[in-house]
């Protein structure tokens, strides 16, 4: 249990996938101008990560990992090099399926999330979290916690960023520094802030 809490705290704050590993920057820069959109995308990312990471774990554990096909009678087969292709395919398929399920059962949620779901397939944060999960050899419960809390960390970062950008509009920024440059520097300062949580030990 303690282990799970420390994974959660670590992936929300210290090891934030956006601020410490630079994952998901494309949409971060493009979307963070508007707070409402940022929140919508954040929720969608949490959602997709919570679902796809455990699914990818199951696929890796029972189809791809070295010796994973032992149940089918092929104990020597190692398909782990296929993980890149299969993870991408899973993510695309899961996003598509999620879209249909949400549309069917919760039209209100679909209206607010719908635009963002297709965007998420190409978000490197989603694939990155699945690959990290393999590299760090997490167990199933750890993977579930890691996926959900990574999503929360990303959402937190993008919402905070959009709030800061709103304030920046009234700031007197030097001409060459306006736009992308000041955003990057602000993100850097935010990353410093998030790293302070490293001092908290469980």
């Amino acid at each position: 249990m303690e282990n799970l809490i420390s994974i959660a705290v670590n992936s929300i704050f210290v090891g934030n996938i956006l601020l410490a590993y630079f994952l998901g920057m494309c949409s971060f820069v493009a979307i963070s101008k508007n707070m409402k959109t940022a929140a919508g995308l954040g929720v969608a990312v949490i959602f997709v990560l919570t679902v796809t990471t455990p699914v990818n774990w199951l696929i890796y554990r029972f189809l791809l990992a070295p010796g994973a096909l032992a149940w089918a009678g092929f104990p020597e087969v190692n398909l782990s090099y296929l993980k890149l292709v299969l993870f991408i395919a899973t993510i695309a398929a899961m996003v598509q399926a999620l879209e249909m399920v949400i549309d069917r059962y919760s039209p209100a949620l679909y209206v607010s999330l719908g635009v963002f779901l297709p965007l998420i397939t190409v978000n490197c944060a989603i694939l990155g979290v699945s690959l990290f999960m393999v590299e760090r050899a997490y167990t199933f419960p750890e993977t579930a916690v890691f996926g959900a809390s990574s999503g929360m960390g990303w959402a937190l970062a993008i919402i905070a960023m959009s709030a800061i950008q709103k304030k920046l509009r009234y700031a007197d920024v030097p001409e060459g520094l306006q736009g992308f440059a000041i955003n990057m520097i602000t993100t850097g300062l935010m990353a410093i802030g998030f790293m302070l949580f490293a001092g908290i030990s469980m």
Binding site: A20, F22, M184, G188, L189, I192, M195
Partner: peptide
């Protein structure tokens, strides 16, 4: 990580 963001800026 913050170093990279600031250098890019």
């Amino acid at each position: 990580a913050p170093g990279a963001f600031i250098i890019i800026g």
